[in-house]
Amino acid sequence: MKRIGIDIFAGAGGLSLGAEMAGITISHAIEINRSAVRTYERNHPDTKVICSDIRDLDPTDLKPKDKGVFIIMGGPPCQGFSLSNTRTRTMKNPNNSLFEEFLRFVQEIQPDWFLFENVYGFTNMSNGAVRRLVEICFRSLGYEVADEVLWASDYGVPQRRNRYFMVGNRLGIKFQFPQKHKKPISVWEAISDLPIVGNGEQSFEGKYLCSLAEATAYQRLMRHDSEIPTQNLVSLNNELVIKRYKHIPQGGNWRDIPDELMVNYADKERCHSGIYKRLKADEPSVVISNYRKSMLIHPFQDRGLSVREAARIQSFPDDFYFEGPISHIQQQIGNAVPPLLAKAVIQQILKLTEDHEQGQKN
């Protein structure tokens, strides 16, 4: 049975990819960023992608004439909700109103399910008032609602990243979030088979460092249908930045850099703890946000992460190809919902739906 999904605020398509892995057919996706749209179109050729401001669209134009929509999913842009932008986390920020567009699409299309995701900061915006308001609005539309903050590392993603999920349905199902995996995946389990590349190197095609048989289970999963690792692209850092990298041990950050190499910082003590962070090989990664701006460092090499390494840590398979300039690609990867996290949540939605449908037959 074909189950139709619509992805709004789709970005590069991490949420869609997870949904497709779980068995959903994505009929439409909406995204305003042109580079992200190009990435989405390349990797989801059977989906109609609409590059537009969502506020200009009529939801009923996306509704199939012959059947209903199973799920609407997406996350409004993070700028208004992110803890890193505390000054703008008020209802006056126009980005914050975009979640109302999600509500509008659900109200007009009336899918069986919705999946609303966002940054952790959404949970305490306006002291939790926004979260409660959104829940009340969905319930007023007839949806049974559950919400939770999930850690990607609990669902097979080699990254300590938390995301807020609100899931609802109008089938009367009490939703329970999926069980956690037992063992987290480390950075080195994820990327140790990828090519050694230099600072600023732009290697569009490379070679795996071990055979498929020698690869870890996670690496085999990520290789998917790919015979070579593509987009081994690293931003070029200047000589001073590379000198700083050399002083930072695994798990360390800017605090390990000698003061004489940080003279261009007006107040070194005000540096964010997440910058100049060298990843620990034997643990899941810290959050892959915009990993170029935060200067995330390879566990063993004195350079930033490559596009393919960051994509691996976000659980994008190696045959997923990103479009646009490298700075746009880095932002697309950092903004994405890890596909394996999305897959786990949507698999649970499908399981509970099938159980419910079976119960109605009996």
Rank of each mutant, 00 (worst) to 15 (best):
V197W: 06
V167N: 04
N162K: 11
K243L: 01
W254M: 04
M295H: 10
R223S: 11
V287R: 00
G168C: 13
Y265C: 10
R163C: 10
S226E: 11
C210R: 15
S192R: 09
S235H: 03
L209D: 12
P258N: 03
D259L: 06
I257N: 14
P178C: 07
Y265W: 14
R270C: 02
M222R: 06
L240D: 14
G274R: 01
P195F: 03
V187L: 07
E205C: 11
R223E: 12
P184I: 09
L233I: 15
K183T: 14
D193A: 11
E283W: 06
R292A: 08
Y245G: 13
L221I: 05
R255A: 08
H298Q: 05
L236A: 07
M262L: 10
S273F: 04
Q250R: 03
G251E: 06
I196D: 15
I185P: 00
E269W: 00
N290K: 08
S285I: 03
L212E: 15
C210A: 13
L171C: 04
N290C: 00
R161V: 04
S211A: 10
T216C: 03
R255H: 08
S186V: 15
I297S: 06
N290E: 15
A217P: 02
Y245K: 01
M222L: 10
P284Y: 13
P229H: 07
E239M: 13
S289N: 06
D193S: 09
N199S: 03
E239N: 11
V187G: 02
R161F: 07
N199V: 05
E189I: 04
Y276N: 13
K174T: 14
K183V: 15
K207P: 08
K243V: 00
S211R: 13
Q250G: 03
A281T: 06
R223P: 15
P184V: 04
K280G: 01
P258D: 01
I173D: 02
Y164R: 07
R270H: 13
V263R: 00
D225K: 09
Q179P: 03
R255C: 02
K277A: 03
N264W: 13
Q176K: 14
N238E: 08
R170L: 06
A217V: 11
V234C: 12
Y218V: 07
I242W: 02
K182C: 02
R163G: 05
M295T: 06
N238Q: 05
R270K: 12
R160A: 00
K243T: 02
K277D: 00
S273W: 10
H181N: 11
N199C: 06
R163K: 05
A215W: 05
H224M: 07
N162A: 06
L171S: 13
E205S: 06
H247A: 12
R163E: 05
